[in-house]
């Protein structure tokens, strides 16, 4: 495998097939945990970790897993890494675990991870799967951060908890509410598609 193809796999996940902006996968955490940049980043990292580890294991075991029970095996592997992530986050910081709470366990049902295991890792070599997972993970992280930053800036007037505006900033309360997640996602999808279209025509 040459160097160009592996960077290609990486760029594919980050931009051309971005899991959120192009494939629109894993919307539950994208909409739910993107209310602040910090939460979005932590969620993105946790998901990326699970994605990378499960892609690696699925790819390594791809000739060992029979086709009939592959989904069950993938879920088992994914759930394992989610549990590990849960413990790891608890061990890192009680505060962080408190703010992510319910959404860590929900990584199990993030369709992005299962779809990469099924569509890519089960058919490709370890190295390619790693690059794919890194790219997709980075793409997911990037997208979550885009949403989280906009929502935190407008909804709270802060970024990573640092105030960006004078004290009497009027927060757009709707941006922290679930509806704000949909608005922001729609806006980013619009921007993303506009950029891609412009590139395609030129």
């Amino acid at each position: 495998m040459s160097a160009t193809t592996s960077t290609d796999e990486f760029i594919k996940g980050l931009w051309r097939e971005n899991p959120v902006f192009v494939q629109v996968l894993g919307m539950c955490p994208v909409l739910a945990v993107s209310n602040t940049a910090e939460n979005a980043l932590a969620m993105g990292l946790a998901t990326a970790f699970v994605l990378i580890m499960s892609n690696l294991l699925v790819s390594a075991l791809r000739s060992f897993i029979p086709k009939q029970v592959r989904i069950a095996c993938y879920i088992l592997i994914i759930a394992t890494f989610v549990t590990i992530t849960d413990y790891a986050i608890q061990a890192i910081s009680v505060e962080l675990h408190k703010s992510l709470g319910a959404f860590i366990s929900l990584i199990v049902v993030n369709c992005l991870i299962l779809s990469r295991a099924e569509a890519f890792a089960s058919k490709n070599t370890l190295g390619k799967s790693l690059m794919d997972a890194l790219g997709m993970g980075a793409g997911f992280l990037f997208a979550l951060f885009c949403l989280g930053a906009v929502r935190e800036i407008l909804g709270n007037g802060t970024l990573f908890g640092l105030a960006l505006f004078p004290d009497n900033f009027e927060s757009w309360i709707v941006m922290i509410l679930p509806a704000g997640g949909f608005f922001t996602l729609a806006a980013w999808l619009l921007i993303f598609n506009a950029i891609n279209e412009r590139r395609g025509t030129s």
Binding site: F64, L76, I77, T80, T83
Partner: peptide
């Protein structure tokens, strides 16, 4: 083969979880 695969992966996963749990 299916049984072996599932049990094998199950054991591997259980092992990973237990190790992390004990470690953390």
């Amino acid at each position: 083969k299916m049984l072996v695969a599932m049990v094998g992966i199950g054991i591997l996963c259980a092992l990973l979880i237990v190790v992390t749990f004990q470690g953390t």
